[in-house]
């Protein structure tokens, strides 16, 4: 009994310490997104900069392909991060930060569509500006054509299917998380993803199948 008490005391100490320093960085792993967000809530701007560096490009690409217009994507991008900054005091690490971030982005996009009834079809994304990788010219041409066809097929997808595909590819979210963000059930999300993947796969395979 006495021995148990002696063992329990340091454990309690360790537990209370781990609770108090929930977002403290560990030596071997980078701090989690939630920990960075909590640090930013307490006034650590550097934590926010780290968090922003991690997610900014993927979020930008998600919005760029979702909106299909660069200026609108930039406006929504700024709006999303503004809402993240505002919500720092109310932030609770109950879910993955990526889910929280893309839910905000998805809602901002929906609000943007509602505000602008005429959803613009402008496509001003440069599809092929990949640098030279040193491959054979035939291979380079084939890949460039595949990218062009994929870009065209992606822009042709319905908004819901494109949204699900981009959340899957850019944010790396699974079906449950995508369903949670889009407000649909898992099966609907799975179906949308399957349709999107099939269309895009056909688009990039088309030149290969055609001699």
């Amino acid at each position: 009994m006495v021995a148990n008490a002696q063992i329990m005391a340091p454990m309690e100490l360790r537990l209370s310490r781990s609770v108090r320093l929930a977002y403290a960085p560990t030596m071997d792993t980078a701090p989690e997104d939630s920990a960075l967000m909590l640090r930013y809530r307490d006034g650590d701007v550097a934590a926010f900069e780290t968090l922003y560096e991690r997610h900014k490009d993927a979020l930008y690409r998600y919005l760029l392909r979702l909106c299909r217009h660069r200026d609108q994507a930039e406006d929504i991008f700024q709006e999303v991060w503004g809402k993240i900054i505002k919500a720092r005091d109310a932030y609770r690490p109950t879910a993955k930060f990526t889910t929280f971030l893309y839910r905000v982005a998805h809602n901002c996009f929906i609000d943007h569509i509602r505000r602008n009834k005429r959803h613009t079809q402008t496509i001003d994304i440069e599809p092929d500006s990949q640098p030279d990788s040193g491959e054979q010219p035939e291979v380079q041409t084939e890949r460039s054509l595949a990218r062009r066809r994929l870009n065209a097929a992606l822009l042709e997808l319905p908004d819901e299917q494109r949204d699900v595909f981009l959340l899957h590819e850019e944010a790396g979210l699974d079906l449950e998380q995508i369903a949670s963000i889009t407000g649909s059930n898992r099966e609907t999300t799975k179906s949308r993803l399957r349709y999107a993947v099939r269309k895009l796969r056909i688009a990039i395979d088309e030149p290969v199948r055609t001699p």
């Binding site: 930013y40 701007v45 926010f48 900069e49 922003y52 900014k56 490009d57 930008y60 690409r61 760029l64 392909r65 930039e74 991008f77 700024q78 991060w81 503004g82 900054i85 994304i125 599809p127 092929d128 500006s129 990949q130 890949r143 990218r147 994929l150 870009n151 590819e169 850019e170």
Partner: peptide, 19 residues
């Protein structure tokens, strides 16, 4: 290979200043 766009600098500055 297709999606390699990066955030423009002016957006970076605006967001970090706001933060």
């Amino acid at each position: 290979e297709l999606a390699h766009e990066r955030v423009p600098d002016h957006l970076d500055r605006a967001v970090l200043q706001a933060a």
